[in-house]
Amino acid sequence: MENKSGILTSLTINNNDYKLELLPWVSLLDMLRERLNLTGTKKGCDHGQCGACTVLCDGRRILSCLTLAVSKNGSEILTIEGIAAGSELHPLQKAFIENDAFQCGYCTPGQICSAIGMLQEGKAQTREEVKELMSGNLCRCGANVGIIDAIMQVKEGSGHE
C-alpha cells in the first residue's frame, strides 16, 4: 500500500463521539461494520443499487456504501442501532413488527432508516408517492406490502402503542 497514514476523523454515531484514524479508502459502511461492530447496517450490493446500507447523515438518508468515511468528518450519523430511544422502539420499528414488514430481515435496517428520512423530508403524501420515494430500498423476500403498510400507518399517525 502506498499510503498507510490514516486521517483523523471525528464522527458522532448514534449520539456517541468517535475519533478514528481512517484510511481514505474505507467506506462509511465498512467502517461501521468492520471497525465499530455496528453490523446492523447491511451490505447488499456495495454499489448503490439496493439501499440496504442506508443510514441517516446529518438527518438525511444516504448510502453508506458510496460514502468515504473520512469525507463525513464532523457529521452526525444515525444507524439502525440508534433509532430506538433506549428500550422504547421507534414507531416505525413497532409498525414493521406489527405489519410483518420483513421476512429475512436483511433489508429491514435500510428500509427503516430510509423511511425515517423520507418522513422527515415530508415530500410523499399518497401511498403511491411513498412507494416511489421508498423505491431505493429493494426487498427480495417481497415484503413490500407490509413495508408500505407500516410506513403509511406511522405516517397517518395511527401507530398502535
Binding site: G48, G51, T54, R60, R61, I62, L63, L66, T67, S114, G117, M118, E121, L133, M134, S135, G136, N137
Partner: peptide
C-alpha cells in the same frame, strides 16, 4: 432519476 438516497448525495 436514481433513488431518494442517491439524490440526497
Amino acid at each position: 432519476g436514481a433513488s431518494a438516497q442517491i439524490r440526497n448525495m
